[in-house]
Amino acid sequence: MHDGNESKKKAKTSRLTKELLETAHDMHKSGLLTMAARDKITMRHLGASDIPAAATAQITGADIKAIREEANLSQAVFARYLNVTAGYVSQLERGDKHPSGPALVLLNVIRRKGIGAIL
């Protein structure tokens, strides 16, 4: 039989995982590990609750349109960069739909760092 405490124990970050993440952070600081490689390790070992809030912050349709216009891109080209359809970008900008998953993360990266961050 499983008790309720067993699932709580699995949800905690293990000492080994903490050490791995600290090592990856130090390797990145010293230039031995790229940011992309460090982030891949981090995302693989952290739970969804530990994902930085900035990566999943909600974006309004007006924000999306402003991001796209600032990058001087049509809806079709912007959609291609996000790996979605132009119709979906249009729905996002009108507020008919709200981005989620990888599209939301990419939009937040573009909002923080500019379109060059994903090109």
Score class of each variant (00 low, 15 high):
47 G>D: 13
82 L>A: 01
110 I>F: 07
90 S>E: 04
50 D>S: 13
100 S>R: 14
4 G>R: 13
112 R>Y: 08
84 V>R: 08
69 E>Y: 05
54 A>W: 12
77 V>C: 10
1 M>Q: 13
33 L>R: 09
7 S>M: 08
45 H>N: 12
108 N>V: 02
108 N>P: 06
82 L>W: 02
18 K>R: 13
99 P>M: 02
114 G>Q: 07
30 S>C: 13
93 E>I: 02
77 V>N: 15
96 D>W: 09
65 K>H: 03
9 K>V: 05
96 D>I: 13
115 I>F: 15
49 S>R: 14
47 G>F: 03
36 A>I: 11
84 V>D: 05
12 K>T: 01
71 A>T: 06
93 E>F: 02
17 T>K: 09
65 K>G: 00
114 G>I: 06
33 L>F: 08
12 K>N: 03
63 D>V: 01
74 S>K: 12
13 T>G: 01
81 Y>N: 05
9 K>F: 02
5 N>C: 11
96 D>T: 10
17 T>Q: 07
26 D>Y: 00
71 A>S: 10
104 L>M: 04
7 S>L: 10
13 T>N: 01
29 K>S: 13
94 R>Y: 07
35 M>A: 13
60 T>M: 02
108 N>S: 03
77 V>S: 15
48 A>L: 13
114 G>H: 11
28 H>K: 15
22 E>L: 09
3 D>E: 07
